[in-house]
Amino acid sequence: MSSLFVIIFLGTLFYLALSVNVKNYINLIGIQGLLLFGIAIFELHELNVVHLILILAETLIFKGIIVPGLLYRISKRNKISVLKNNKTHRKAKGFNMVIITALVIGLSFVFSHNQQDAHLEIQYFTAAISAMIMGILFITVNKNIIIHLISFLVIENGIFLMAIAVGSNMPMLVNAAILLDIFSSVLVLTVFLNRIGQFFQDVETDQLTELKD
């Protein structure tokens, strides 16, 4: 059953690579959160109750509901619906993105299969590596600050899967730290954009760099 979620998770990565619509990105992040919730239910049932509830709450409530909700608010208030000026999605670039995504997923599949570790759950490992690489890739090819945020969330999802892949849950403290990081970044950005969003037509990092002068 859980490989079902992994396969869909890989599918969301493809969608992420191709989408130009901010709403889609946010929905996909939400879906990923729900998928992780599903995976957590099926994989972590040996855990003690408190931990389990915490993790389930993290995936379902935080990843699946709160973060997408916040992002929705940001995009709505700042009227960002479609990525403008996005070079990655113009003409042939989107075409290349498909090839790159397929390569990333394929290679991480081969890579994780060739790991000689009996404890490793290969399917999660594949998804984890591809999610992390794709997240980094999105950040490098995109300028939009919201996409950066979403990419961080994808990377975080990758880390979560990685923890499951190596056969144990993450130490509570690390988990909390990462959560806090991401959460604060979302919060900071929300506040930031709410305050200054109206002065920018588009939230591109280039424009934000000019701010410091």
């Binding site: 396969i7 890989l10 599918g11 493809f14 191709l18 075409f95 498909v98 995504t101 397929a102 997923i105």
Partner: peptide
């Protein structure tokens, strides 16, 4: 081309 990617999955 995305169809090929999904087919790969």
């Amino acid at each position: 081309l995305t169809l090929s990617g999904i087919a790969l999955i």
